[in-house]
């Protein structure tokens, strides 16, 4: 799949104590991705909205990159999705 090279909207659901959330936040920052972070413990309605987009998997971090939703992803998985936004549309 290829997209235009517009930056995707990125929404990151996190929990304050969660080491995998810290890792993913760091990865997105290192990749110079602009993202909105939602603290699941501090944002009313956030748990429900996360469950709605990720198939009911109660898991943090969950990240939505454009239309793609990844649950507790590894760096390679995130990079693969980000890569689709760096390929010029044909």
């Amino acid at each position: 799949m290829s997209h235009s090279n517009d930056a995707p909207d990125v929404l990151l659901y996190t929990l304050p104590y969660c080491p995998d959330c810290r890792d993913l936040r760091r990865l997105l920052t290192e990749r110079h991705v602009t993202f909105t972070e939602v603290d699941l413990a501090r944002t009313p309605g956030a748990v429900e909205s996360m469950l709605k987009i990720n198939g009911g998997r109660r898991s943090a971090p969950t990240v939505r990159i454009g239309a793609q939703v990844l649950v507790d992803p590894g760096a390679a998985e995130v990079d693969a999705v980000l890569q689709t936004y760096q390929t010029p549309a044909r």
Binding site: Y17, A41, P44, G45, V47, E48, L51, R58
Partner: peptide, 21 residues
């Protein structure tokens, strides 16, 4: 034993977290 200092900000989020499991 938790690093959290207060309850989650809304009861509905906790209810959803329980309900989902």
């Amino acid at each position: 034993l938790t690093p959290g200092e207060r309850w989650p900000d809304d009861a509905a989020s906790l209810a959803a977290a329980i309900r989902s499991q």
